[in-house]
Design a protein around this nucleic acid. Structure first.
Length: 794
RNA sequence: GAGCCAGUGAUCUAGUGGCUAUGAUGUCUCCUUUACACGGAGAAUGUCGAAGGUUCGAGUCCUUCCUGGCUCACCA
């Protein structure tokens, strides 16, 4: 055995071994119960980030445990590479603008770029030791996924759960597409709260406070609260819009808050959701003033063509010139921005596809209740999100690289014709429908729109299910619901929620039995990591310096749902544990070279450590079953470091080194104990540190156990016959004595090797006699006697 | 504004009613000991956020408050 462990060499070696030997390949022949994991397909970006390394490690602990625990683990790997995030990446990598090139060229460029970067991207997941079946990887833009996604749409269409509507929807003027509520983010911006003077027909003046003066030309009516005494006389009158000069009616409406601003509110098309509701309620004709690319249109008169920002500036300055700007207070306010680009969202009236979700909120909450959430409180977050939903799910995007809607629109009667399931996957821009429209016409147009990326990733359970079926999956293997959905908490409102929606609509039940939610990685100060903040840590940099096992060991240090700070010292601790395993194994395996048969009888201290080991196995099993990998990590670490290395290895040395003095059977007993303790420690650590455990396993145990990978070994079962509480209690007391002797030597600045003349033990001889020889050797005591009080005579 | 989570030695952390509160990192002292100095032995450091309450007994349960983080909402 080499002096030092070369993790770089070793990790690469085992990664290749697992792949060429197909260790994690899903087996159709395996008749064991299936444990299926609805793995998150990471969005293809340049590189894996540390948050990925963290949460994917956590799910891999579970996958590896379940595999050892005897399940036939179905653990496919996928990547999410369609839709806006992929387009953004391609635009950045290739320095292009999708709006400035032909659509098909851009789509092709996306396709090629994804193919180009995918292998390297996936490699990062292999490096951290993910035990997915990489021979079966899906991509959300591949034919199979497009088919599954389009099939989902057809099913919703048939069930009347999807509809197309022209209405004000949230719009990103930068990405030039509609977006969904879940894609909003808060951003605090500097702005001004402006008191603007409006005139009434008879020359009276009123003041309205607004943060959005550029929408003056979009104002269609004015609200005051019905009980607001100040403004009772305004109701029913008209107001004249400053700078624009047209008249709008003044209504009484509950939605005007007398406390806010001047208590008078202008309704514009559209400042927010409530404006849209107000205009619909009053049946007013909207004055839509913003173009899809964020400029002012002809309603803005002299401001036409300006950007929103410029129009705001110009209008404010003109108001000021006219003496109509009564006050301008600087404020900080929080606005909704598009999460992908940070642009403030607008409301535009466009034709979009929506999946009905508002009507069935209760169903989604009920379905959520049938899933076991780890940690439990994450369900509350899910529930609150649903309770606060304000919109149906807008799934159409005015983009290019994504799943096309499997529909055509009749040129003559505008009827929607949907594709047949057998035609899928289909691009209606390239293929004509196989039948005529109801009206007899065969002239159709197809939509340029594509689906929201979540519309596809939300069918990930169906993607892997259909895929398994295609591969000849035995129908008796229950795949839906999946056993587990692992993901991070930032996408509860998107991925988890949308997948449950689709599950309820397509299969009438929740998509998984369990869901585990990982936290985020924070910087050393406990703040969120952002590339722009410069505090992000790259896994490749970490892995250049530390073993992947150390990274995983660190990731095992926090419980599900908890955020974890990235502190380099924790990686050092992980690395030390790897080294310690190597060194302890070096010693142990050397002692095991001639170990063949079981001992006739176990020595007292051997029973002591085996008792602790079997209790540890029992607890670790329980903890892993509850997804409490952090407890397993902490318990095994403590057992290994303290009980096994600090105490037992030292205790066993005399018997191992001096069989002529201590007896051959006594040595065999120690060998047996070491074999069992080390092998089981390795197994317990294997899900967390797969590389070092595999390395050590292959140095000795694979030959004896006849299983080609530690990750295919069965999870240890506690041997109740080896648990001896009485023995453990006495052993613990003697461990304390050993500790006292060490303390005494340490305080006297004497080496631990130094012999002790006599130890007087505060026990009855009969009670501890089986331990005495080992106690004498480990403490280097020349003589042991028994008395009332502990005495250590150096 | 609402909800959720958390507040334990210098730092991070375990601990869901019961002996002198766990472990790690850091600090200090000692030990080159035949697995390991990426080690070992030991020491010091805690009014368990605050105040009340329940209980024979509370870090652990309840109430209120304070602080931090997250999520959602408001954002004329």
């Amino acid at each position: 055995m080499a002096e030092n462990y070369n993790y770089k060499e070793s990790e690469l070696k085992w990664r290749k071994f697992w792949e060429t030997e197909g260790i994690f390949k899903f087996s159709l022949k395996n008749k064991a119960k299936v444990y299926s994991i609805d793995t998150p397909p990471p969005t293809v970006s340049g590189k894996m980030h540390i948050g990925h390394a963290f949460s994917y490690s956590q799910q891999d602990f579970i996958a590896r445990y379940k595999r050892m625990a005897g399940f036939n683990v179905f653990y496919p790997f996928g990547t999410d590479n369609n839709g806006l995030p992929t387009e953004k990446l391609v635009e950045k990598l290739k320095n292009v603008k999708s709006t400035r090139m032909p659509r098909n060229e851009f789509v092709e460029l996306c396709d090629n770029t994804v193919k180009e970067i995918l292998p390297n991207f996936i490699e990062d997941w292999k490096i951290i030791g993910m035990s997915c079946d990489f021979s079966n990887s899906y991509s959300t833009i591949d034919k199979h996924c497009i088919k599954t996604s389009q099939k989902s749409f057809l099913d919703l269409f048939k069930k009347n759960l999807v509809y197309q509507q022209t209405a004000p929807t949230m719009w990103c003027v930068h990405c030039q597409t509609a977006i969904a509520q879940a894609e909003l983010e808060d951003k605090e911006l500097d702005s001004t709260f402006n008191d603007v003077q409006f005139s009434l027909e008879k020359g009276d003046k009123i003041t309205i406070a607004t943060t959005r003066p550029e929408l003056l030309g979009a104002c269609v009516c004015i609200y005051v609260h019905p009980t607001d005494k100040r403004y009772k006389n305004l109701i029913g009158k008209n107001a004249i819009i400053p700078l624009f000069g047209y008249k709008v009616p003044i209504f009484a409406d509950e939605s005007a808050d007398p406390e806010k601003g001047s208590g008078i509110m202008m309704v514009c098309s559209w400042g927010d959701k409530y404006d849209a509701e107000a205009i619909a309620k009053r049946k007013l004709t909207p004055r839509i003033i913003i173009t899809p690319d964020g400029k002012m249109n002809s309603f803005a008169k002299q401001y036409e063509g300006l950007t929103i920002k410029d129009a705001r500036k110009q209008i404010l300055s003109d108001l000021e010139k006219e003496g109509l700007l009564i006050a301008k207070k600087p404020i900080k306010h929080v606005v909704n921005v598009h999460e992908r680009c940070g642009t403030e969202i607008e409301f535009l009236s466009t034709k979009q596809w929506f999946i009905k979700i508002l009507d069935n909120r209760n169903k989604f909450i009920e379905a959520g209740k049938t899933i076991k959430w780890y940690p439990e409180y994450m369900f509350t977050r899910y529930k609150h999100w649903i309770e606060n939903l304000g919109w149906d799910w807008c799934i159409s995007r005015q983009r290019h690289f994504g799943v096309p809607f499997p529909i055509w629109i009749c040129k003559k009667c505008s009827e929607v014709l949907v594709a047949e399931e057998s035609e899928l996957p289909i691009d209606p821009l390239e293929k004509k429908p196989s039948k005529k429209c109801k009206c007899g016409s065969s002239e159709f147009t197809a939509d340029n729109d594509v689906m929201d990326t979540w519309a596809t990733s939300s069918v990930s359970p169906q993607i892997i299910l259909n895929w398994a079926k295609d591969k000849g999956f035995d129908a008796s293997m229950e795949l839906y619901p999946c056993s587990l959905r692992p993901q991070a908490h930032d996408i509860i409102r998107t991925w988890a929620f949308y997948t449950i929606v689709k599950g309820v609509y397509h299969e009438n039940k929740a998509p998984w039995k369990d869901i585990t939610i990982s936290g985020h990685v924070l910087d050393p100060k406990g703040e969120a990591m952002h590339k722009s903040k410069g505090n992000a840590v790259e896994p490749s940099v970490v892995l250049d310096k530390y073993p992947a096992d150390a990274l995983r060991f660190w990731a095992a240090g926090s419980k599900l749902g908890d955020d974890l700070r990235y502190l380099e010292k924790d990686l050092v601790t992980g690395q030390k544990t790897v080294t310690k395993l190597w060194n302890a194994s070096k010693f142990t395996l050397l002692q095991l070279q001639d170990f063949k048969s079981k001992p006739k009888k176990l020595e007292a201290f051997d029973i002591w450590i085996l008792t602790k080991l079997n209790k540890l196995i029992s607890n670790s099993t329980k903890n892993f079953d509850n997804y409490d990998y952090y407890k397993v990590k902490a318990d095994v670490e403590l057992f290994f470091w303290r009980d096994l290395c600090d105490y037992y290895l030292e205790i066993s040395k005399d018997r191992l080194y001096n069989p002529d003095k201590r007896g051959v059977q006594e040595r065999v007993s120690a060998q047996y104990t070491l074999y069992s303790s080390l092998l089981n420690t390795l197994k317990l650590f294997a899900p967390i540190m797969p590389f070092i455990t595999e390395e050590i396993y292959h140095m000795h145990f694979s030959e004896k156990e006849k299983i080609k990978s530690i990750h295919l070994c069965s999870w240890p079962i506690p041997d109740q016959s080896l648990i001896d509480e009485k023995n453990e209690e006495i052993g613990d007391k003697l461990i304390e004595i050993i500790s006292e002797v060490r303390k005494e030597k340490s305080q006297k600045s004497v080496s631990l090797k130094e012999s002790v003349k006599e130890i007087v033990l505060p026990f009855k001889e009969s009670e501890v006699k089986d331990f005495i020889e080992d106690l004498k050797s480990v403490t280097k005591a020349e003589k042991v006697s028994f008395g009332k009080k502990l005495e250590i005579k150096l």
